[in-house]
Design a protein around this nucleic acid. Sequence first.
DNA 1: ATGTCGACGAATCGTCGA
Length: 259
Amino acid sequence: MKVTSWNVNSLTARLPHVLEWLAANPVDVLCLQELKLTDDKFPLQALADAGYPHCAVFGQKTYNGVAIISRTPLREVVRNIEGFEDEQSRVIAATVDHPQHGALRVINGYFVNGQEPGSEKFSYKMQWLQGLQAYVASQLQHHPRLVLLGDFNIAPEDRDSYDPVGLADTIHHTQEERAHFQALLALGLVDGFRLFEHPEKTFSWWDYRMLGFQKNRGLRIDHILVSEALRPAVTACAVDRTPRKWKQPSDHAPVTVDL
DNA sequence: ATGTCGACGAATCGTCGA
């Protein structure tokens, strides 16, 4: 069973890429972030035609917005973080029923960017992460087979950044953010990507500016964390750089786990 | 500081967020 996370930076702009990618990579579940559209604009028909008739959507105009797109039915959909009031559409959870693999709880998040340490947005990021942590802890109690995935906006370690020295203590790289990432792991999750060998400097995001992708000036900020119960079932987890090379790409590449 | 995008409003560019 394959589950993918992809920040598409506007589904309106990226729908052709999503459809092309799905045609070449017929994963079971695709989790999207940064839809930048309202629910009424979500392309349900195009995705159904592509073989994904089951969608849980939590949209927002201009900013944020997340969705879970599935070949098989979704149930128990929860929008945003239980117990954390938030005006922004950043989290959607659902249980995926799969005929061979059984039920899987999926929590898809577009984590707060945080802009700059010390800013108001950064303190919102910290509060949001605290709320998420409590929520995931609770979800794990009810759903031992769980994945937490999405655009975390955190580079967990120095090796997840193209310039860990020059960017030390800047956004995505701070100790506070990294401590929150570790706290999520401490709930009983493991970074799927690190279960396998990868080339050095494997990233999931590259700035549009300054030829970031061409120079591989990137960060690994898109993650798939899997619960301990699922860990033995994980056979692969990788970033697909291919669509980042297409014309008018998202600045993020999709990450897929096989379990 | 910032060379790129995408969305938005009220433009046909300036601003914001990433």
